[in-house]
Design a protein around this nucleic acid. Structure first.
Lengths: 197, 197
DNA sequence: AAACAATACTAACAGGTGTTAGTACAATTA
DNA sequence: TAATTGTACTAACACCTGTTAGTATTGTTT
């Protein structure tokens, strides 16, 4: 029965994870009950435990899935030698905007609820984030050294870039005024253009 | 006994509110128990109710205190006719940075936990925020019309400005690399300078 | 000294929490 | 067909939640 069941199990678990991401975003991790989640999936709370190990596991999977996607894309950009430093930053910011636009639930949960990760996951997560920030700083430092980027405070610029896209959270509530691509272009101009030398 | 008691009561309540802000930020509103809060204040949970009406009331006071401070400062800037549009934006961003640096607990609670406000407070809060954003947009629109600001998407720029300062949250954990004033100058240059025509 | 108000305490409440045990049923595999 | 596996259910658990009632203690005001 292996394959069919695994497929079924997989899709069921995906449903649960998707519903969890939405609920964790809307109500917060701590305020989302297993009975809420079960209701959304259309099942009794106890039945969830045929598919997941715990509520915490759901949060772990969301946070590290998102973190891995960000890290993988950063790796790609770093390896792409056809891009100069500004173009690298632009590619990274565009990816962040895309993630916030297309995967709001997961990304917001990762940003706002990761503190509820149990140890050692929380420590691992914070460490990965620190390394991610450090790698972005290095791109900026390299750009400054090569004369492609203005003399700026790399750490401060990274913080600003990473946080600025969080504004997309509010855009999501009232999408009508401006399209996703307009938003993306506007943010690129505002955040990246000014770094050019 | 009115005055002395009120003073005592006031300071006791301030202590509770301060501890609440810190706990709400660290653990989140939902995960902060009245017994946690009481422990921090050095008292039994039930004793808190001699000073406050409910857990919700604590959140309300924090959120609206912060919201009022932001609104009051915006009012001042709007009324100051010696400032052009760029200078107005700069003053506003500087104030946001200062608030995030000096009153992190309250500001973060206001940003991250306001969704736990009970109705009608939640609706009122969201409405005030919408109006605040709208007023910032108007400053930008006016600056564009007067030729002081580049042609940008006002809404997108406001979202970016308001969210970018949230990066200060992470700076707070490791203040050592860069001072508050360096951070402020860096953010002003990155976020405001590029808007000049 | 008497009265009062503020504030702390203990005990208890009704309801909610994540999770486990045990069981029944359905579909798939041998 | 028989055995196996996945998945749903009900019932229950130990614990935690914000809050109230009732009471004792303290320090201040009349």
């Amino acid at each position: 029965m292996a394959k069919l069941t695994n497929r079924k199990n997989g899709s069921r678990k995906e449903m649960i994870s998707l519903a969890a991401a939405r609920l964790f975003r809307e109500k917060g991790f701590a305020s989302t009950g297993m009975r809420d989640l079960a209701g959304d999936v259309g099942v009794e709370a106890a039945s969830l435990y045929n598919h997941i190990r715990s509520k915490s596991e759901l949060l772990q999977e969301i946070c590290f899935r998102v973190a891995n996607d960000f890290t993988a894309q950063l790796q790609e950009v770093e390896n792409n030698n056809t891009l100069n430093s500004i173009e690298k930053l632009e590619a990274i910011v565009r990816f962040h905007v895309t993630m916030w636009v297309n995967r709001l639930d997961e990304v917001m949960v990762t940003n706002n609820e990761s503190k509820y990760l149990e140890e050692p996951y929380n420590a691992t997560f914070l460490n990965e984030r620190r390394i991610y920030v450090r790698r972005l700083e290095q791109i900026i430092e390299e750009g400054i050294a090569k004369g492609q980027i203005r003399k700026v405070q790399p750490y401060s610029v990274v913080l600003t870039l990473l946080s600025a896209v969080r504004g997309i959270e509010f855009w999501h509530r009232t999408k009508k005024n401006i399209s996703a691509s307009e938003l993306e272009e506007s943010m690129i101009i505002h955040l990246v253009e000014g770094l050019k030398k």
